[in-house]
Design a binder for these strands. Structure first.
Lengths: 232, 232
DNA sequence: GACGTTGCTTGATAATTATCAAGGATCCGA
DNA sequence: TCGGATCCTTGATAATTATCAAGCAACGTC
């Protein structure tokens, strides 16, 4: 791959501060591949051979145990995943599969480790990225541990609406089955939870949702920057 | 504080690789303080003024929302907490309070940030520590999302027994109320869950628990390195 | 346009987990 | 040694969440 191919990747917080030549070094060994939807990219337990960057499409991170599965996160462009496993040279803790047809950059783990040993700017960027990932996971955990299913849904809807411009309308970024798993509930329960929220001005039309009574919804949801803010 | 005061702290993975003078620099500005039990050290939302190192005793990390509380983790000697907030200079996402009388080292956040900018060995150590914290949180999240209360308890007991030497006996490292909150259930439910596990050789005597039928218990618990292993 | 497929919803029911209330045990200070 | 805590347990009940079984609607293929 040529480093000029992907200005968006160059612009990632993770790579922005590194020197042009280091970046070129990393990209030289990287592959840019397009995968169809619903394709497994990695399985938990695998050794960390690549750092992944989602360039186009959408990737689901999920975990399995005893025939059960749970969505752990969704990665949208431009986002990376399984950085921690790459850094530690440890087995992945999560599996990943494409949701839609997706373009993904694969950077050999060995190169990432080598460059971060040599380039302290890159090391600092990794620190920042890891800290963000950690704090994101803490927030997810708080969400699940402190809130009921309806409360989690209400807050997610409020978040989506805000992220999408605060127009009072939002489009679910993936199907309801995945949203349910992301929120830690069954699809049936998500359906019922949406009904529960109807009196709070939540109007569902397929994957378009209108929030017509924001005061009521936020009174129920009680969003908190320390749980729901994806940027802080 | 003199850096010679705390060889255990010097020996922390986080500080081991840094130069003697950098370490001295960090420690010069640090306070070593002893706190009584049940004392609040930090509250979520506070700005990250210090990095904390538990030298003696035990500290509980917890989170609150809407009059609910959940234990997020327990920090034993020698362990650090809220590194990510310090690095990002962002508000703490968790509160912390002593469980027992505890000796805690407080390192001004500004110094930590300054030293990690200057010392790339320290930066690498921070990366490693953050990656561990992240992976630990992922495991906690998987545990909660994929398992029932009884399954979480069974696995925790198996983990404790292993950590304490594999003698078939374990001592709960903190009271049942906190264990329950750590496992994401009520104290009442923990009590019942322990009864549920009696047929699987779980004999409770106060905070001492004997596991007399390991095969049966592990068949139920199905421990997984990708969830229960605190070291990988 | 018929037909299967898929995703979503609904209803009935069951399992899990929480809440409320009370009782027992233990520990500690007066 | 006698309260008075605190912690844990138990029982009864309620709320939450999951499971199972249909059914419906949208969509693409043929």
């Amino acid at each position: 791959m040529r480093s000029s191919d992907l200005p968006e990747v160059r612009d990632l917080q993770l790579f922005r501060s590194m020197s042009e030549e280091r970046f070129a070094e990393l990209m030289q060994a990287a592959y840019l591949q397009t995968f169809p939807a619903q394709l497994d990219l990695i399985a938990e337990g695998d050794s960390a051979d690549f750092l992944y960057v989602v360039v186009e499409g959408c990737v689901e991170l999920y975990a399995s145990w005893n025939d059960r599965q749970a969505t752990m996160g969704m990665v949208h462009p431009i986002g990376t995943f399984i950085l921690a496993a790459v850094i530690k040279d440890a087995p992945y803790l999560m599996s990943a599969r494409t949701v839609d047809k997706s373009k993904v950059l694969l950077i050999p783990a060995e190169d990432v480790r080598q460059v971060f040993e040599a380039d302290s700017d890159f090391a600092r960027a990794i620190i920042s990225e890891l800290a963000d990932c950690y704090r994101g996971m803490v927030k997810e955990h708080k969400d699940l541990k402190l809130r009921s299913a309806v409360e989690r849904l209400a807050n997610r809807l409020v978040s989506f609406e805000k992220e999408q411009g605060g127009t009072g309308e939002l489009v679910l970024p993936y199907d309801k089955r995945k949203l349910a798993s992301m929120l830690g509930m069954t699809p049936e329960n998500l359906s019922r939870a949406l009904n529960t929220l109807r009196p709070y001005g939540v109007d569902v039309d397929g994957n378009v949702i209108r929030l017509t009574d924001m005061p009521a919804l936020t009174t129920l949801a009680k969003p908190s920057a320390l749980i729901d803010d994806r940027t802080t």
